[in-house]
Structure formats: structure tokens, C-alpha cells
Design a protein around this nucleic acid. Structure first.
Length: 946
RNA sequence: GGGCGGGUAGCUCAGUUGGGAGAGCGCAGCCCUUACAAGGCUGAAGUCGCAGGUUCGAUCCCUGUCCCGCCUACCA
């Protein structure tokens, strides 16, 4: 055993990490016989870099997995990343833009190659960052949502859901991002309250008898209006229903319809209806018989279409809004404008304002799947912790709408569906006529520029299938075209045998693949050993922000394809905010980089802070001060270890003996600390069992610092340094110190893996690493010793209190008299007087039940004893009276409360007997202290009189 | 509009069967006591948002109310 440096140097952390990794300690196989325990990591975006949320998330999982591993479980933590379709594509497109090119010039295949290149180069970044916090993931099982195995799982799930009719195509309005050029699911739209304007526009009646005024926040969409709606019972408009208005600027005649959904109290009670650009209006249009026409006036880039009229075609939607307002103004058709706040949807990736857009997309029918997930939560197969999230979960699941899974981007799992241009639809149309392609750049064919057209036309004009698909910007495939969905890529049409098949160009929502994560990472659809062993996983640790995005969908897919839940517990942790409680965001500039914190304070201090803050149901306000505090805690432990190692004697032990071998040689102090330690273990186990990470962290902190260091180590000095110590006690005390140090390190290891390993390696130990050692389990609770220790603690605290309150320097050796209230106390204090002398820096010490306060003595009145300190000449009588009276007042306050309680007959009658007894005991204790205090005060007052 | 969470010491927060209000930091005083001054000892500091109710008893349960934050919605 070599000596320690004076301070711990956290810069050596990664050396231990490398050691663990190289030795294979992260693999569950280190505990071959153990019961399985598994966690899959919420896969961070491959484009991401570690932020506070990841750090907290990973820390909590690592605490759990290290704890279980030490308990002997075959603990597996599966790491990996997701391919983050839109985000990654955006990153690479920006890169291309800086090179002066774009994805269209590269073509789909080349572009995807570029993204893979990017992934190879940068995709490991966040994984490397995870290692910095000590995450003990099994890297040999690392997965990526686009790797071969997971892609196979995606394909299998898609095909099966398609075959079961749970995946379908439909034409309806979806959330469209005009910048990313893709559809988004409802969840991928972020709503933000913004102040806008409500414009009141006059729509002239066809018959010339005045006009109807409608209110809108989006004047530009009026170009696509196909009706005006009023409430059927609105008396103001009763006569108008069925009449028509002339749509200004366009001069289209549109009907006035009645619909219950119109709120008569909003605006004028009349609303313009734009079925192609508003979700409400779409629903209204479909309710009409016959349905209202859909006129698309805004295109996929947010620009006005030809249908918007010559004047506006090609304009950006906001530019057009201004223009429309100007034109209406000129016609004097604007009645008024009003400020109006409403929430507007933005793309969660690029923050562009979403445009409701009518296209054919792929959907998952989720109702049935959601019901299964709900009942799994309902019947307790899945627990959500903290339960506060249950309501949100149920509410969302009950109102869930079908999930749009197709995205018009290139990076992702391409939908495994093909279309045959040569087959005919049920109505007898050539499918090739129903597939419309527009090119991103016109193709020059013998001086003729081809912008696009139906597939049939383009083929007739001499373009090959490859050429067409390579240059395709948008491919619109009519809902009537038959989808051929297969596990293996087809080379010919199964119906007509044609060799010209067109593959659906869309890719799947990234969340579609992450929904499979708990089983796809374990080898599904193959029946692998891992899958059989580790599914279902034990807990999913994640933030609430992806409860619906991801957690709910994993439940659906797991239940569907594995016939079992993907995890038994879902632990939802807090959001990490800045010290002022603001959400961290790049735009606010208040982001704290976890890596900088780790550099500065070490991963251990950082992890411990996060765990200690992770109280359920409340966000974390992160402040560096706290991390610094826990760094001091590390220093404390380090120095406790130094102390112990310096005091092991000339022939230090080469192994750690179990307490049974030496516990009988200990005195009360040793038995007391072992008892406290046993309780700490129980508390920590229970806390971790219930995901109360803060309680667990604080429990070990409290024990190590304030019981082990402040009391036991200080007490042990008396034993270690005294020549009168018996060899048995000396030996047992050394063994006890070493035992507690080593065991505490193990208890602390899940929270502070690095420093505990560093110290553990310096101690006698069995095995290669603390991380593969066993979790402490000892039952050494000793209530008698704990109770008796109170005499000692009260005596020492009493003396210290007098010293402190009277500002007496520690160097002054005080004469002390202690008056215990009973014989047990007297015996105990006499036996352990050396401890009192040492810890309270007492000189002459006398113990007797017969003592009474005498002239010139300061007194401290405790429950079990009284402490007198003769301060002849030093004691300021007035001061001392004030000190004691203050004490008395406190006691009186408490007594008052108890008095009222005990005099209350209802309390005596109705409260449980044990509570009444407890209150009576408290009363008697306090009463005793009060009398003794009063006695002391009386004597002082007599003195004053002399 | 609906829902959820929070309001406890100067600051950040614990407080899970309703039965004597706690921690960390900060602050004040005394100390370089030979593991640690990144430390030790002592101490000051709270109408537990406000108002009702249930109860022998409420920081805890119920109702109302005021702030703060979040989620959600078909607020033209």
C-alpha cells in the first residue's frame, strides 16, 4: 500500500475508463451467473453534442447499471445513436452549400454517401463525450438506427404493419415545413404564442346587398377560399346561408355555408374557409355535401401558386400577405385590424412557420396500438415514475391521431414500397398517368427543356426510368396507384411482370426506427440470445420531452411485435435549467457545456451534483457552486483515505477482514459507526429502488462526511494515538476504519466511479476493479450502541457549545464537570472519558450524578446530562443569564405546544396511544431540562445580587 | 380553453403512511487541533404563497384564490 498524494487529481479519470473498457468490465458477461438487468440508452442524435440533459440522463442510467452490476446482475446498458433524418440532412446540406453545391447536383445516391462519410467522421462525437462522464455502456453492442440489423427490423415492421392494414396512404392536410420540404408529424410541430393581427375583410354579397365581414390572421389564404361559414343558429346570418359572396381579388363566387364549429362569439361570427390551407377548414369542407373544393394557393416552398392568380403567383407567402392587404385597402374592403395573439406552429428542426399542405402521405393507424399501450400502463405492466406524468400520458394517448411517417428527404430508411406504371387502377387508368414528377432542374433534351410531367409522358419523351428518378424533386403518386410492399426488393411487377418499377422516394420518420430500439438493438427480428435474455428491459430513463415522441411509440411497437412491454419502469427525469431557472438554449446563450464542467471539477463531482439534484418532479437549476461543493466532498473522502492509510500501523493488513472477525474487540464508538453504516446501506438501496437519486446521494454524503469523518475518525484518533490503548482495540479500530473506508467507496462507486476506483486500487482488495466488486450488504444495526452513543455525543456537544457560544479558543483547556442523569450514563461516560477529553479539548474532567452548578460555571443542559464548565472570573454573569434564558425561551415555546396538546382531552382520547406516549415523553424530557435551566438561572441571579 | 407541476431559511432545494420544520451554499463568531483551511467547532436565520375547510392535530388531505413555469387544443 503506497501513500497518497495530498490531493486528488481528476485529470487521470480517463485512464480508469480505458482500463475498464479494455478489460471488458462493461459487458454483462462479467457476471455470467447473474440475473439479467438491462437498460437501452435513449439514442442521442448522431449530429448531437453532449448537453446537460444527456449528462443527467446518462448519469442516472450509469448509477443504476453500476449499482445492479455490483449486486451481481448481468447488467447490460445498450448504447447507440439515431440517424436524425432531418437534422443530419440539414447539417450535410449546409456543408454542401458552403462548397457551393447542393444535394440535387450530387443526386440521391451520392448525397447519401456523403452523409455516411459525415457520419463516419463526426458521428462518434457524442459517444466519445458520453465516455467522459463515465458511462459504463457495453460498447461492443453499440447500435445505429440505420445500420444493417436495425434497418432489417424497420423493414420487417413496416411490411407487417402494411400487411395488417395498419399502414396506409392518404391525401389530407399535413404539417409541412416549406424550408425542409417535408411533411412532419403533429409532434414535430412546436407551437408558440405570438402576437399577430386579426384583419376584418369585407366579402361583397353576390346580389349586391352589402357584404359579409370575415376575420382572419392569414389574409393571403383568401385567394384559396372556397366558402364562408357561419354558425347555423346565428341570428345575424340566418338569411345569408345558401347565398353567395364574391371573393375579392379573385372574383370567385363562393357559397355561405353553415357549420357548428363556427364560434359566433369570435370575430364577426363569419369565417372564411380555405380547405387546402387550414385544418379546421379542411374538416368543414369534408363535412359539406357535396364537399367544398380544395384550391392550393401555396406550394411546397411557401410560394404562391398559379391558382392564387397571376398577380400573386410566385410570391412568397408573407410578401403576398402584404400585397393582398394593400390591394384590399385600395378596394376599401378592410373594415379594421386588431391585435391578436395566437399560437403558431413551427418546424422543430428549423423553426420555420409550418404550412398546412395537402399531399399524399403514409400514416400509421395508431388507435389500436395506443390502446394496448394504455392498458399496459393501466394494469401495471409498465410503471411511469413519477406518477405525475400518468395523466399527460393517458390524455395524449386517448386523443392520439394517426401518425404521419413519411418524410420527403433522402437520409433515412426508404419506404419499402414500389409502384408499377404499367398496371391499371381499378378505374382502368394507367398508373403511369397518375404519377407526377417535377424536376429540380429542367432536363435539356435536344434543346427542349423538360420540367416534369406524368411518368408516362416523360417516358414517351424519351427519358429513362433512372433519369427520371435521379432528377426528381417531387414525386406525387396518386392514392389510387397500387402499393407493392415487400420484404425483398422486387425486380419485376408481381402483377404484370413489368421490369420498370418506381420505388417510393420517401423515407420514414426517424422515430419510426427509434420506436423499435428496445428490441431491434437486441437482434430482432432474429431470435437471438440477447433478445431472449435482455428483453424486456428493466427501466427506461428519459426526459419528459420525448414521452410521446418516443416512449409511447416504443410501448406500441414493443407490445405489437414482442408481445411484451419494452420496459417495466419508465423513469422521467427533470429538465436541466440554468441557475436562473431559464431553459438552456443556444439562442439565449445560457448553455452550460458539461465537458467544461468536467474539465474543471471532474466527472465525479459533476455526476454527484446531478444525482443529488435529481429530485422527482422538479426541474434542476444548475449552478456551478454546487459542483464545487461536491468537489470538496471528494477532497474530504480522499483525505479520510489518506488518514486511514497513514494509521494502519507498521504491518498494514493485506486484506480486509469481515467485521465478524473483530467487531467484538471494538468499543462503543466502533459498534455505533458500523450500525450507522448498516442503516445507510439500507437507505441507499431503498432510495435507488425507488429512483430517488437525490436521497441516495445525500444519504451517502451525510454518512461519510458527518458521521464517519466528523465523528468516527475524530474519535478513532484517541485510540490510535494513545499509548494506553489495548492491542485488541487498536487492531480492531484499524480494521474497522479500513473496512468502512473500503465499503463506503463501494457504496459511493455508482455515483463517483473514478475517485472510488483510484482509492480502491490503493487499498487491499480482491478482484480487479471496484466496479466489478460486490455491493455492500451488512446487517450490523445495534440499537443499544446507538442509544448509548447519545451520552457521548451530548457530552461532547455540550462542551463545544459552551466553548463556541462563549468564544473560548480551542487552545484553552477547560475543566469540565458532567452530571449524567442516570447510572448507565455515568458508567458509560466514565468508560469513555478519553473521547470527551480529546474531542471537546477538555482538561480536567469529572463525572458524577451528584454535581450541581456552582458559582462561576457555565452550563449546558441536555436531555441526558448537564455540562458545567468552571470559568472563574472569566464568566460574564449577565451574558450567561441571557444565554440560558434564550435556551429557556426555546424550550418554553415547545412546551407550550405540547402542553396544549396534552391538556386536550380529544387528543388523549383520539390520537394513537403510541403518539400520546411519545408526546408525554417529550414533555417530560423538556420539563426536566426546563427545571434544570431555571435552577441554573436562579443561581446566577443570586450571584449577581452579591 | 383544458391539464399538470411549483410557491418551505438570504439563495438553491429536501421533507412518501397528517403527530417535535431539514440540508447544501451564503452569513456571523472562534480556530492553521499533526487526513483535509477545498478544513474544524459554534451560532443566527422560516407567519412552510394567501383565505377557508376536514381533523384531537395540517407544510402534508379538501375547496377557493394569487403568482411562476410547463404541457396540450380544431383561439378563424
Amino acid at each position: 500500500m503506497n501513500n497518497l498524494e495530498k490531493n486528488y487529481d481528476h485529470s487521470k479519470e480517463m485512464r480508469w475508463y480505458e482500463y475498464w473498457k479494455n478489460e471488458g468490465f462493461f459487458r454483462p458477461e462479467v457476471n455470467p451467473g447473474g440475473k439479467p438487468y438491462s437498460i437501452v440508452i435513449p439514442p442521442p442524435n448522431v449530429t448531437g453534442s453532449l448537453h446537460m440533459g444527456h449528462a443527467l440522463n446518462a448519469t442516472l442510467q450509469d448509477v443504476m447499471i453500476r449499482w445492479k452490476r455490483m449486486q451481481g446482475f448481468r447488467a447490460l446498458w445498450v448504447p447507440g445513436t439515431d440517424h436524425a433524418g432531418i437534422a443530419t440532412q440539414n447539417v450535410v446540406e449546409r456543408q454542401l452549400a458552403s462548397e457551393g453545391t447542393d444535394r440535387y447536383s450530387l443526386g440521391r445516391e451520392e448525397f447519401i454517401k456523403r452523409v455516411w462519410q459525415w457520419k463516419e467522421e463526426y458521428g462518434q462525437r457524442i459517444i466519445n463525450q458520453l465516455t467522459r462522464i463515465g458511462a459504463s455502456c457495453d460498447w461492443s453492442r453499440q447500435r445505429f438506427t440505420l445500420d444493417r440489423g436495425l434497418s432489417r427490423a424497420v423493414r420487417e415492421v413496416f411490411v407487417r404493419l402494411f400487411e395488417e392494414g395498419l399502414i396506409y396512404r392518404d391525401l389530407r392536410l399535413i404539417n409541412w415545413c416549406p424550408r425542409c420540404h417535408t411533411a412532419l408529424s403533429d409532434l414535430e410541430v412546436e407551437h408558440e404564442e405570438l402576437e399577430g393581427k386579426l384583419t376584418y375583410i369585407r366579402y361583397p354579397l353576390e346580389d349586391g346587398n352589402g357584404y359579409v365581414v370575415v376575420a382572419t390572421t392569414r389574409p393571403e389564404t383568401m385567394l384559396g377560399d372556397t366558402a364562408v361559414a357561419v354558425h347555423p343558429e346565428d341570428p345575424r346570418y340566418r338569411d345569408l346561408a345558401g347565398k353567395r359572396v364574391v371573393l375579392p381579388l379573385i372574383n370567385r363566387k363562393i357559397p355561405i355555408i353553415a357549420d357548428d364549429m363556427v364560434d359566433p362569439s369570435f370575430g364577426t361570427g363569419a369565417v372564411k374557409v380555405t380547405p387546402a390551407h387550414d385544418f379546421n377548414d379542411e374538416a368543414m369542407a369534408r363535412r359539406q355535401n357535396p364537399p367544398l373544393p380544395f384550391i392550393t394557393v401555396i406550394d411546397e416552398s411557401g410560394k404562391m401558386t398559379d391558382a392564387a392568380g397571376k398577380k400573386y403567383a410566385g410570391m412568397d407567402r408573407y410578401e403576398c400577405r402584404k400585397e393582398v392587404l394593400r390591394d384590399l385597402q385600395e378596394l376599401d374592403l378592410i373594415e379594421k385590424e386588431q391585435k391578436h395573439t395566437h399560437s403558431i406552429g413551427h418546424c422543430y428542426r428549423c423553426k420555420t412557420v409550418i404550412e398546412p399542405f395537402s399531399t399524399v402521405q403514409w400514416y400509421v393507424k395508431v388507435k389500436e396500438l395506443a390502446d394496448e399501450a394504455v392498458s399496459a400502463v393501466n394494469n401495471g405492466s409498465i410503471r411511469i415514475i413519477p406518477e405525475a406524468w400518468l395523466n399527460s400520458f393517458y390524455a395524449w394517448m386517448e386523443n392520439i391521431r394517426d401518425w404521419c411517417i413519411s418524410r420527403q428527404i433522402w437520409w433515412g430508411h426508404q419506404i419499402p414500397v414500389w409502384y408499377c406504371p404499367y398496371c391499371k387502377t381499378e378505374e382502368g387508368q394507367h398508373q403511369g398517368d397518375l404519377i407526377t414528377i417535377s424536376f429540380f432542374k429542367p432536363i435539356d433534351r435536344g434543346g427542349e427543356l423538360i420540367k416534369g410531367g406524368t411518368y408516362t409522358e416523360l417516358r414517351l419523351r424519351g427519358l429513362s426510368t433512372e433519369e427520371i428518378m435521379l432528377h426528381a424533386n417531387t414525386v406525387n403518386i396518386d392514392r389510387g396507384v397500387k402499393a407493392i410492399c415487400m420484404r425483398e426488393d422486387p425486380s419485376t411487377c408481381p402483377d404484370c411482370g413489368s421490369e420498370e418499377l418506381i420505388r417510393d422516394p420517401d423515407v420514414l420518420d426517424t422515430w419510426f426506427s427509434s420506436a423499435l430500439w428496445p428490441f431491434s438493438t437486441l437482434g430482432w427480428p432474429d431470435d437471438t440470445e440477447d433478445l431472449r435474455t435482455y428483453y424486456p428491459t428493466d427501466v427506461l430513463v428519459t426526459g419528459f420531452d420525448i414521452l410521446f415522441f418516443w416512449v409511447a411509440r416504443m410501448m406500441m411497437m414493443g407490445l405489437r411485435f414482442m408481445k411484451d412491454v419494452p420496459f417495466r419502469d419508465v423513469y422521467i427525469h427533470a429538465l436541466v435549467r440554468d441557475a436562473e431557472g431559464q431553459k438552456m438554449s443556444k439562442s439565449k446563450g445560457n448553455v452550460v457545456d458539461p465537458l467544461l464542467i468536467i474539465d474543471k471539477y471532474g466527472a465525479d463531482a459533476f455526476r454527484f451534483s446531478l444525482a443529488a439534484f435529481a429530485a422527482q418532479g422538479r426541474d434542476i437549476k444548475f449552478s456551478e457552486d454546487r459542483v464545487e461543493g461536491y468537489k470538496n466532498f471528494i477532497n474530504k473522502i480522499w483525505n479520510a483515505a489518506r488518514f486511514i492509510m497513514m494509521n494502519l500501523g507498521d504491518s498494514p493488513p493485506t486484506r480486509i477482514e469481515a467485521p465478524s472477525a473483530w467487531i467484538e474487540d471494538l468499543d462503543i464508538t466502533g459498534k455505533w459507526i458500523l450500525s450507522r453504516f448498516s442503516r445507510t446501506i439500507v437507505d441507499i438501496n431503498r432510495s435507488l429502488e425507488e429512483y430517488r437519486f437525490n436521497d441516495a446521494a445525500n444519504g451517502i454524503y451525510q454518512f461519510l462526511w458527518h458521521e464517519f469523518c466528523d465523528w468516527y475518525i475524530e474519535l478513532s484518533k484517541t485510540v490510535l494515538y494513545s499509548e494506553n490503548t489495548s492491542p485488541e482495540l487498536l487492531g480492531a479500530t484499524r480494521k474497522c476504519l479500513l473496512f468502512l473506508l473500503e465499503s463506503s467507496l463501494r457504496l459511493l462507486h455508482p455515483f463517483m466511479p473514478f475517485v472510488t476506483e483510484e482509492l480502491w486500487q490503493h487499498l487491499p482488495h480482491q478482484g480487479e476493479s471496484i466496479m466489478t466488486s460486490s455491493w455492500p450488504e451488512y446487517d450490523l444495526v445495534d440499537e443499544t450502541s446507538e442509544k448509548r452513543m447519545d451520552y457521548l455525543i451530548e457530552a461532547i456537544s455540550g462542551i463545544r457549545s459552551i466553548r463556541g457560544e462563549l468564544n473560548i479558543p480551542p487552545s484553552a483547556r477547560l475543566g469540565v464537570r458532567i452530571r449524567p442523569l442516570d447510572q448507565e450514563g455515568e458508567d458509560l461516560l466514565r468508560q469513555n472519558a478519553h473521547y470527551i477529553r480529546q474531542l471537546a479539548r477538555a482538561g480536567e474532567l469529572q463525572i458524577s450524578q451528584e454535581f450541581r452548578k456552582e458559582r462561576g460555571m457555565a452550563v449546558s443542559v441536555r436531555n441526558l446530562l448537564e455540562v458545567y464548565v468552571p470559568l472563574e472570573g472569566l464568566l460574564d454573569v449577565e451574558n450567561e443569564i441571557m444565554r440560558l434564558e434564550k435556551d429557556l425561551r426555546k424550550i418554553d415555546d415547545k412546551l407550550g405546544l405540547l402542553d396544549r396538546k396534552l391538556l386536550n382531552e380529544d387528543f388523549i382520547r383520539k390520537a394513537p396511544e403510541e403518539v400520546v406516549q411519545k408526546e408525554k415523553m417529550k414533555y417530560n424530557e423538556l420539563m426536566g431540562r426546563k427545571e434544570r435551566l431555571q435552577e441554573g438561572i436562579e443561581r446566577l441571579k443570586e450571584l449577581r445580587g452579591e
